[in-house]
């Protein structure tokens, strides 16, 4: 462990690549925020995909891990404000779980900031745009995740 192997092959410049961002948006707030951004025709970077979910409670932490394993550079989970969940406390439950996942991501060096858990209400469409733009900028400064973590030595047998 004493010898530090260079990771230079992974350091690409931010301009050379667009990060891949996956958004889990709850149907009642996050998705409506995305809709609001769309209605205003706010130009957004096309590097994100939205998966609508009934409630952020149904976003398995394992699905977030799977997303990173499938080559996402960042994941956003968007739910309703605490206290404003249609499903009682489900968003708070999700928040607690995902905070723990953030601690794990930080531990293994992926960095807790690659997973963004955020809460808003339906009318905050302009904030959806802000969050996406800022998050894209933040992730673009980091090295890509989809190098040797997932694919380099792995092969089918």
């Amino acid at each position: 462990m004493a010898v530090e192997v260079s990771n230079n092959h992974k350091q690409q410049k931010a301009t050379e690549r667009t990060p891949r961002i996956l958004v889990f948006a709850c149907k009642w707030c996050g998705l409506i925020g995305a809709d609001g951004a769309g209605r205003k025709r706010e130009p957004l970077p096309p590097n994100f995909r939205v998966i609508p979910v009934e409630c952020v409670g149904s976003v398995e932490p394992d699905a977030v891990i799977r997303a990173f394993a499938d080559g996402m550079d960042g994941v956003i989970v968007m739910g309703c404000h605490l206290g404003g969940c249609r499903f009682n406390d489900a968003n708070h439950a999700a928040f607690k779980r995902l905070e723990l996942l953030r601690a794990l991501l930080e531990g293994v060096g992926i960095g807790r900031d690659r997973l963004l858990v955020t809460f808003g209400t339906a009318h905050e469409g302009h904030q959806f745009t802000d969050v996406l733009r800022n998050f894209t900028n933040l992730i673009a400064k980091k090295e890509s995740l989809d190098t040797s973590w997932t694919s380099s030595r792995a092969r089918m047998i």
């Binding site: 932490p61 394992d62 891990i65 799977r66 990173f68 394993a69 794990l104 997932t150 047998i157």
Partner: peptide, 26 residues
Amino acid sequence: EPWVRRGIIPTEILSFHLIRAFHLAD
């Protein structure tokens, strides 16, 4: 499947180890 791809050796580091670790989080 769908959590960890079958038949891949060595394993997919991220999905295998992070899912295992997270299941024991608390």
